[in-house]
Simulated assay, not measured.
Amino acid sequence: MSSALWGTLLAACIVISFTPGAGAINTMSNALSQGWRRSIWGIIGQQLALIVHVIIVAAGVGLIVSQSELLFNIIRYAGAAYLVYLGIRLILAKPTLSSTDDDPVADAPSEGRWSMVRRGLWVNLLNPKAIVFFLAFIPQFVRLDQPQLPQYLTIIVTTIAVDIVVMWGFFAAAARPFRRLARSERGQRTLNIVFGCLFIVVAALLALVH
């Protein structure tokens, strides 16, 4: 891959990563409930999903999904249902107060890292439009007259590196100002409702917008 083409890929990945979606909401929610450092586990799960999406497209499965209305709808509604589940669970979650001023979540029960990884994985994986998007996005940066594996590895590494920086460095960090609000039971309840509703809104968009 030429430096000019890679530069275009990098710019595209930055724009894509900054586009708000379920991954960004999940990252900010994790940062609020588990802290900025531990939110990386959810981000790792989301990156695993991106790898799967690229592999699906490279293997040609993405084309099958995009051309099969039944398969597309099955994945689409499953993804929407999962986001609704996450939203309702967050809305109903009981506030956990901390005695530490510097870290409002320091004394809160810590979610297991693998639980956060799994949730991040499913949040990004159950999105058929991501498969269709990558199906349209990836071929623009793959040259058929050159070895395929190095090109796909470059795409995967660039996409993951950019997304981690944006998710952890921007969206997770953006949740920090709200952590002062999380020091009170009312504040936590408000944040849980807000982020829970955001999950449900994204689910509605995924299910209803064609």
Rank of each mutant, 00 (worst) to 15 (best):
W6D: 06
A12Q: 00
C13M: 06
V15N: 03
T19Y: 13
I25H: 00
N26T: 13
T27C: 08
A31N: 05
Q34W: 02
R38V: 02
R38Q: 05
I43N: 08
I43Y: 06
Q47M: 13
I51N: 04
I51W: 11
V52F: 00
Q67Y: 05
S68N: 15
S68C: 15
F72S: 02
A78E: 02
A80I: 10
A81C: 09
L83V: 06
L83S: 03
L86H: 04
S98R: 07
S99F: 04
S99T: 09
D103M: 10
P104A: 15
P104H: 13
A106Q: 11
D107S: 13
P109L: 07
S110R: 12
V117Q: 02
R119D: 06
L121G: 05
N127R: 03
F134G: 08
A136D: 02
Q140H: 08
V142L: 12
Q146G: 09
Q148H: 12
Q148D: 11
Y152W: 13
V157N: 03
F171P: 10
F171R: 05
A175S: 10
R176M: 11
P177Q: 03
R179P: 01
L181M: 15
G187A: 08
Q188A: 06
T190P: 00
N192V: 04
L198N: 11
I200W: 07
A203F: 07
A203L: 09
L205D: 04
H210G: 06
